[in-house]
Design a protein around this nucleic acid. Structure first.
Lengths: 249, 249
DNA sequence: CCTTATCCTGACACAGGTGTCAGCTTGTCT
DNA sequence: AGACAAGCTGACACCTGTGTCAGGATAAGG
């Protein structure tokens, strides 16, 4: 384990304590954290013990929520955490944030509504480079006026969540390819973006007035620079680092 | 333009003003913002006018930085903004954040060091779902003790940057496929994750003890649910929503 | 002048992915 | 019992991507 990772592990106890203490302070004392929504296991310490067991309080302490695939935590809140990056809150059977957001309102909260002993929640999603997504959830058993709590505390909670999730992932050495890639040329980026839009090499050639061989040449170079094996990984890594962006090239 | 997008555009003036005012207040009054690092154009208003021209102050007001590919903004800071999600600062020729971070220290700042009239900076990267990456930069011409400014203000600056970049992208209707996808089944996610790790359908079949046809079946279903055209897009979208995560399936 | 980087292009064999068609079993819920 | 979802498997034609080989032109910097 490198020094950097050891230092990150050393930061974890204070961060975990701060996250639970923040929940206690504002009236949402039931806390859960996921470092990686692609991994169903909960956030754990260096010895593999889940913080859910050692440090966080949960709505139902005897209920290992991460083993229950039907708990609200697994559906609406997780779905929403994948789709937005800004903190949001749950009350009155729906998800909202500081401004009207179409996506959050489209998330089906039926299951959360039907969960007994569950009041309100503030959720801070954490989107990291290379497609890593985590989240922290502060919850209550009864309604506590979460909307005003959200207005006053969401920013700080989000900052805490970002530090916690980013530090934990770095402590675990995730993602493994977290290196500074070589600079991509203008053509490499162009070809990657059209490939990300689903175009074949032939189609890209037509679009950019290049031969298929030239397009392949640039895509292969880009793949080598990004440390990718194949077209799909090139695109995934490039997208995860923001090279692809929102619009087709 | 839908109501949601109109509401987002309506939020923009106050957010832009807040971002510039925050920089003015703490002594880093030269501000730049990118909503999408995959798009070289700067953040603009609903009429297409760059905020860099109408609202933000820059180190060299006559110098359209977004047209200069060699400016510090294009290299070290942008590279770093792609690689980390936590705010960071530039001083003494290097990038640092609130804790030692290997990645930031590996970013080559030679060009920033050699940029005349450039002092220190705080950078707030913004990583959004589906691979959208933006950033806000607060800069000075001379050193201003940015390390202590960072300690006191980074959290608030980051929250401002997140609101600004997320709202601006939503105002523009980016990304176009920002919808709630259908729920993926356990096998669909498993197959996607191995495919994201670069495995062929045959290799995935061996790993999961399934036939090639079954693997293809699950990947095709997943592609349809995600609205993807082809394997590469399936993987990109799944990764951008955190389904792939940090470790090979 | 030389080196390097970037961009460009072609050929060919082979592996992998796509599209479309067909079928089946098991478990859960009404 | 029936409907539905999830999971499973095969065949075949065809397109696309990969890997490896070859070559060239232009611009910038030392």
């Amino acid at each position: 384990m490198t020094d950097y990772r050891a230092q990150c592990w050393a930061e974890m106890p204070a961060l975990i304590t701060a996250v639970q203490a923040a929940g206690d302070r504002i009236g949402l004392p039931y806390v859960a954290a996921q470092a990686d929504l692609g991994d169903p296991e909960p956030m754990s310490d260096a010895d593999g013990k889940p913080y859910a067991e050692t440090s966080f309080h949960w709505v139902d302490p005897d209920h290992a929520y991460w083993r229950d695939r039907k708990l609200a935590l697994h559906i609406a809140f997780l779905t929403a955490a994948r789709l937005v990056a800004e903190p949001f809150f749950y009350s009155d059977g729906r998800l909202r944030t500081w401004r009207p957001t179409q996506l959050l309102e489209a998330v089906d909260c039926e299951q959360a509504k039907n969960t007994p002993n569950f009041g309100e929640a503030i959720i801070a999603p954490v989107h990291l480079p290379r497609g890593l997504v985590g989240a922290v959830f502060w919850c209550s058993r009864e309604p506590v006026g979460v909307e005003s709590l959200f207005e006053r505390h969401a920013g700080d909670l989000h900052n805490l969540a970002l530090k916690l999730v980013a530090t934990h992932n770095e402590a675990r050495g995730r993602p493994r390819n977290a290196t500074v890639p070589q600079t991509l040329t203008r053509r490499e980026v162009q070809c990657l973006r059209w490939a990300a839009a689903g175009k074949t090499d032939g189609e890209i050639g037509i679009i950019l007035s290049l031969s298929v061989s030239t397009v392949r040449f640039h895509l292969r170079n880009a793949a080598a620079k990004l440390g990718a094996t194949g077209r799909a990984q090139s695109i995934q890594i490039a997208a995860g680092l923001g090279f692809v962006g929102a619009r087709a090239a």
